[in-house]
């Protein structure tokens, strides 16, 4: 079993137009930036991207939006991405906005073999339109379905040749659930180590979920909102 690939070119082999992708990260934190750069280079288009956000105008998934490579976004927050908001309001970009917790759970369910689940989030709102409503313990819930993807592309701090992953701080976010829900899951890591280098007690994502892994060449790790205090 050899999961190690040399670079994002090999890691994304088979990624084609019109595919559905999951992209890990929250804001610009924990995003697979090397893979995104390769997708820009490949010029794949018509993509459906499942990702909490869409980066900023000139970084992260914002780069794919600028190149009109994304047909549809499934996200919870547009936030401060002007191009995303513009494309959505003009109707160029199809957008499915779903509550953040439901997004996380839908990915987790997709990877865990749970086809759907009930949640109170979104009941009585636009999000509930067309969805089954059922009461549990006197409280209405809506039925949300699982999400899966042709490719899930995640970013971890450390990984080993078995595909085991450890994330750093809040860069973990959506990466572990998305890793579970890809037909092919690609992990790009800051540091790729031989099997046995990571403590099995500390693995966040077991290697069974990972098909391809590579060490990213560089990580810019841009900060979206630098906020500091004085000493």
């Amino acid at each position: 079993m050899n999961k190690v690939v040399k670079n994002p070119v090999e890691a994304l082999e088979g990624l084609q137009d019109d595919m559905t992708l999951m992209m890990g990260g929250f804001g610009l934190c924990g995003i697979p930036e090397n893979s995104i750069a390769e997708m820009v280079r490949m010029g794949v288009s018509g993509l459906t991207c499942i990702s909490n956000n869409a980066g900023v105008d000139d970084f992260g998934l914002g780069l794919l939006l600028q190149g009109k490579q994304i047909k549809k976004m499934i996200s919870s927050y547009v936030g401060e991405n002007d191009e995303f908001e513009r494309q959505m309001l003009s109707g160029e970009l199809e957008v499915d906005l779903i509550p953040q917790g439901s997004l996380a759970e839908r990915c987790r369910a997709g990877g865990a073999g749970i086809p759907a689940f009930y949640t109170p989030a979104g009941y009585g709102t636009e999000v509930a339109e067309g969805k089954e409503v059922r009461e549990f313990n006197g409280k209405p819930h809506i039925l949300e379905s699982a999400l899966t993807a042709d490719f899930a592309i995640v970013k971890a701090w450390r990984g080993d040749t078995e595909g085991n992953l450890i994330f750093k701080a809040t860069a973990r976010n959506f990466n572990p659930m998305m890793a579970m829900a890809g037909k092919i899951t690609v992990a790009e890591v800051e540091e790729l180590l031989p099997a046995g280098s990571l403590n099995p007690n500390e693995i966040h994502t077991p290697g069974i979920f990972i098909q391809r892994i590579f060490q990213g060449e560089t990580f810019e790790k841009r900060i979206e909102q630098r906020t500091v205090r004085q000493k």
Binding site: F26, G27, L28, C29, G30, N52, G79, Q100, G101, L103, A104, E105, C107, R108, W157, F167, K168, A169, T170, A171, R172, N173, F174, N175, P176, M177, H204, K221, R222, I223, E224, Q225, R226, T227, V228, R229, Q230, K231
Partner: peptide, 29 residues
């Protein structure tokens, strides 16, 4: 503190933050 910000450690507003003693990190689910 200025100069000690970590791109991997942010809050839900995407602002750089710190972790208190006894903090825990976890995934979105």
């Amino acid at each position: 503190i200025d100069g000690e910000e970590d791109a991997d450690l942010i809050n839900a507003g995407k602002q750089t933050i710190t972790a208190m003693n006894g903090a825990a990190y976890f995934d979105s689910a």
